[in-house]
Design a protein around this nucleic acid. Structure first.
Lengths: 190, 190
DNA sequence: CGGATAGTTGACTTGCGTCAATCCGCGTGG
DNA sequence: CCACGCGGATTGACGCAAGTCAACTATCCG
């Protein structure tokens, strides 16, 4: 479990390009599924130096047998991971570069808020434009153009490792961003 | 669990377009995750009339507590679902229309083989070009153009509800298709 | 001071979307 | 039995969002 710093999980294609599947911020578990199942279907790379807490796999597994409720909580976390991938998938397939970029910045903001590292005003973000490009299915050059637009249209500024929202809800409604899939309370789990 | 026919799981966007997240063929479980967790994050629609076997949720859940191994098998199935989404995600983000379409046809072929409904020669496929478009993040018109190319270049023919491969491995290597993520034996599960 | 790494900007190209016809097979109803 | 409508497939002309190529700048660091 990450306690400090950011990481990314990604996959390389034969043609040399890579696709970042998700970013991991403090509080996230790394490789939940792969640990449970002993499969590795993508690689992980730090974005910044990362401090992490190690969790003993067998203790982790056996805790599931003891507490059915705990098991479901973790299943829920794993499930959120998938929901984020689906969300990103849909974004890449059906939204233009502008909306897509905004969505990613909003989602990361949301998640940073959840762990107390951000507010509606903004958050510290160590990603480069290349990271964003690899996550969004764009080129770094185009990401740059989009970020400029986001700035000039008065929505977000991303500079010097800091994302600053000029009206979070404003942007959210402009690009039709819906946060439900990250919300534990919103789910019907009990 | 589907015993006959095809279905699709999809999501609508506010702008009216829809994205098909996955297709479900005979042998597939519908809504594994959502049943386990009682959340619904996408809708399901039949492609053809579907015959399905119903599985009692509580019996299903309690069987997990009795058999740890069974639980992991189902986790593996759920995990394969996610792997397919990731694969599709990467395809849309990083591959052109031609490769992407080929990948989908190959993946479906692979899956049909696994349940004994297809061979390397081909399989029956009830999807329309609109279905493909909604799954691939393309327009039906462009799907049509791509299918023509696939035909003219001697790779696959998709006509009258039948996909015919003119050399499965041929196409697979041409578009860099790798089947590992579907392969139970390939995983390190035990 | 040189050499990475990241960001920025402009000119040009291209893959895919959009719009608009046309065609075909099928079912339905007059 | 024919007319019609409809869903799906096909094709062409045209436009645009994003990619590519190519500089140039800024900053940090050894």
């Amino acid at each position: 479990m990450i306690s400090k710093g950011w990481a990314s999980s990604y996959k390389f294609l034969r043609n040399g390009s890579r696709q970042i599947v998700n970013f991991h911020i403090p509080g996230d578990f790394l490789g939940l599924r792969s640990i449970l199942l002993r499969i590795a279907d993508h690689s992980i790379e730090p974005v910044t130096p990362v401090a992490a807490a190690e969790i003993d796999v067998s203790a982790f597994r056996s805790s599931f047998q003891r507490s059915h409720r705990l098991a479901r909580s973790f299943l829920w976390v794993a499930s959120t991971d998938e929901a984020m991938v689906v969300e990103r998938f849909i974004g890449v397939a059906r939204r233009n570069a502008f909306d897509r970029t905004a969505h990613l910045l909003l989602e990361l903001g949301e998640r940073m808020k959840l762990v107390g590292l951000g507010t509606n005003a903004g958050y510290d973000c160590p990603l480069t434009q290349y990271h964003l490009a690899d996550a969004l299915g764009l080129t770094a050059i185009h990401v740059n153009r989009v970020l400029r637009q986001l700035r000039e249209r008065g929505f977000v500024t991303f500079r010097n490792g800091r994302v600053t929202f000029h009206g979070f809800d404003n942007l959210a409604s402009a690009v039709d961003y819906n946060t439900a899939y990250l919300d534990y309370k919103g789910s019907k789990i009990n």
